[in-house]
Design a protein around this nucleic acid. Sequence first.
DNA 1: CTTAGTTGTTTTGGAGAGCCGAACGGCCGC
DNA 2: GCGGCCGTTCGGCTCTCCAAAACAACTAAG
Lengths: 253, 253
Amino acid sequence: MNDDVRTINAVETAFDIVEYLKESDGAGVTELATELDLAKSTVHSHLATLYSNGYVTRDGDTFHVALRFFNLGNYAREQSSLYQVGRKKVDELAEETGEKVYILAEEHGRGMHLYIATGKRSVQTYARTGQLSYLHQLAAGKAILAHLPDERIDEIIDRYGLPARTEATITDPDELWTELEEIRERGFAQNREESIPGLHAVGVPITDEDGVAVGSLSLSAPAKRLRGERFDEEVPRLLLGIANEIEINMAYV
Amino acid sequence: MNDDVRTINAVETAFDIVEYLKESDGAGVTELATELDLAKSTVHSHLATLYSNGYVTRDGDTFHVALRFFNLGNYAREQSSLYQVGRKKVDELAEETGEKVYILAEEHGRGMHLYIATGKRSVQTYARTGQLSYLHQLAAGKAILAHLPDERIDEIIDRYGLPARTEATITDPDELWTELEEIRERGFAQNREESIPGLHAVGVPITDEDGVAVGSLSLSAPAKRLRGERFDEEVPRLLLGIANEIEINMAYV
DNA sequence: CTTAGTTGTTTTGGAGAGCCGAACGGCCGC
DNA sequence: GCGGCCGTTCGGCTCTCCAAAACAACTAAG
């Protein structure tokens, strides 16, 4: 599929509207028209279409993303073998370590938090199920990036750039490449306050039969609890073992 | 918003494609074109649009619903105050009774399983989070129907009909109306194997300040365990109490 | 190696539809 | 009652989405 095939404008507009409704927690016709630079009547027909098909709801003059999307979204998650297989393992791991453990799936060059298990000691982070993140900002994301073909890595950097989230976030492509090299060599990725101040994390890739990453497994904890040998050896070894189990199980789904 | 306003064809086609991909667990261009009665080139451009925006993925020649929808869908769920407030209560109730307890939300005349908590003794039903069901087939659904304005009930029956799921499903409008009258009087609904053979359920409405249902709370169990006084009084009283707590909490969100 | 039958992809042109702009009607608050 | 919001409606120009057919790539059969 070529990149410059003709796409359908009306469909993109419709999704732009839905995404804007999500970002703004609901909006009206006029706001949408000015923000998305469309005629009010255009927005109106789009909303009428989305409404009559059940994809948006309205509350007075503001429109919202409808639960109908949850129907589609939950289906997509349950279809994924990564979720089917990984969920149980992640629960066990969170129970065992007491920390926050999660699965990230790669899709279109970004990372989606497929499932999050919180252990007894885990801190309140703002990671949420269903969240879409940039890969370079996360241990789990870097673990994925390192196990993608080189040309895809370039593509992803080109497409999304390397936006910062904390002062420690890697924003330089060359720096990222050397980091990815290291990750390939030792087999796991680390995150040192690159996405949340005070938080460390370890991420390991989950790959298909060709060694290409389809997702990753990750554990995060306060920097003071995840350091030294536990950070560099213990937790990585634990995660690598589980990731391997997941890979094996996925092959037989 | 009038029913005969102009809707945008291309947008409806795009969603038809996505819904078909869901129903069929993935499909190719030709299959979509024949099933949806469209030209192959039309399907192709739609898929190209959806793909380049990240709403479908492809695996060889078959296209699938992408996780991107999970991002939107999970957002929609977490926005809902019914979910925010009800989740904890439902967990507690499932723990306490050992049975399966769930929250149903009403949207566009159908019921969406917002959250399901399974107790220790609960049976494996095929109810899943995110599932879209007909209201008349469920205790939770009938509880909602009974607490909607009469004209909306007529609308819903007109729009979706009363499809059967078991031999006990109510398929006659008059019968449904008398049942709804009873539910209004006693305040709760019962399901006697109307959706799954061998399964009983109790459902109570969750209403807004005007007494109109926005969702419902429900408990299901094997018919042999949910009968007699427990079915007719104990469980209904328990659910009504919790539903009331949820309503009060929702008013302050 | 050829052939027949799959796929998905690309290309055309024209009809039809989406988009815009402007006018409308309802609602609230100054 | 009047201005300034809101969403809704309508007519029409223009752009674009749709359809049909030819194309390319791949598989299976002989």
